[in-house]
Simulated scan of single mutants.
Amino acid sequence: MNSIRKTFGLATRTYRGLDWLAPLGDLLLRLYVANVFWKAGLVKIQSWSSTLYLFSEEYKVPLLAPEIAAYMGTGVELFFPVLLAFGLAGRLAAFVLFVFNIIAVVSYPTLNAAGLADHQLWGLLLALLVLRGPGKLSLDHLLWPRLQKRVGA
């Protein structure tokens, strides 16, 4: 019986430690995914003529003209990762990037298996952020209670 108590005590301390580290994990998750999309946006603005070429010849974004798709895609990749990194409107930012990620896969028919695996990973991580939220180390966690008090919700 004593060994069961010791094991249970160790498990309890381990779980508490992991709970204490969870906000850091949420932050690292947000920063990782935000970095992926942010870098893609930076690449697009470094050579706008190449970006326009890719959107007109390689990427087949449904329902949008290539130039509009290029501006919108670049805008999404430069704006929403910043929100996600800071955890400001974190669920919204994750959701927009989740949808954007799906559109990217659908729009690039010659995506290879490694590229598809990357997009699947990013999609899974973004879905997790949509469901769980940005965590305690976020502006949402800091500002949301104050906003609720102000609005009276």
Rank of each mutant, 00 (worst) to 15 (best):
S107I: 08
S47R: 13
S50C: 01
V43H: 02
T74W: 01
S107F: 11
Q120P: 00
T74E: 03
I45Y: 07
A117Q: 05
K136R: 11
D118E: 08
L139S: 10
R132D: 10
Y59W: 10
T51I: 11
A65S: 14
P145R: 04
F80T: 10
S138E: 12
G41E: 15
Q46T: 08
G75L: 12
G90V: 11
Y71L: 11
T74R: 02
L54R: 15
K44L: 13
A117K: 12
P145S: 09
P109F: 05
A40I: 07
P62G: 07
G41Y: 06
L116T: 07
L78A: 01
K136N: 03
I45E: 02
L52F: 15
V106N: 00
L84V: 14
L128V: 13
L121H: 03
Y59V: 05
L126S: 14
S107K: 04
L63D: 06
G133Q: 11
G133P: 08
W48G: 10
P81E: 04
V130W: 13
L64K: 08
L131S: 15
G73K: 02
V105I: 11
P81A: 12
F55W: 03
A40L: 12
F100L: 02
E58P: 01
L139P: 10
A69V: 12
F80Y: 05
K44R: 11
R132G: 01
T74C: 15
D140I: 06
W38D: 00
N112M: 05
P62Y: 05
V106M: 01
W48Y: 02
Y53R: 03
V76W: 01
A65M: 12
E57L: 07
F98K: 07
K60R: 06
L83D: 08
L64S: 14
Y53G: 15
G133M: 09
A70D: 09
V61R: 03
N112V: 00
K136T: 03
G41L: 11
L116R: 01
A65V: 10
A89C: 05
G90Y: 15
D118C: 00
A93S: 05
L121N: 09
G87A: 07
Y108K: 06
L63S: 11
L84G: 01
P62E: 09
I68D: 02
K39I: 12
L78K: 10
D140A: 11
A69H: 12
S47Y: 01
L116K: 03
V105R: 00
F55R: 06
W48E: 08
V61W: 04
L83G: 07
L128C: 08
G135V: 05
Q120W: 00
G115Q: 05
F95I: 13
F37N: 04
W38F: 06
P109K: 03
V99L: 03
V82H: 15
A65Y: 08
V82N: 04
A93K: 14
A85D: 14
P134C: 06
L97A: 06
K39L: 09
A104V: 04
L129D: 15
I45K: 13
A127N: 06
A89V: 13
F80Q: 06
S107N: 13
P66L: 02
L83M: 14
D118T: 00
A113H: 01
A114Y: 08
V43M: 07
K60I: 13
L92F: 10
S56F: 11
A113M: 11
A69M: 14
A117N: 12
L63F: 06
L131V: 02
G133L: 03
P109A: 06
I103Y: 00
L84E: 09
P81H: 07
Q120K: 02
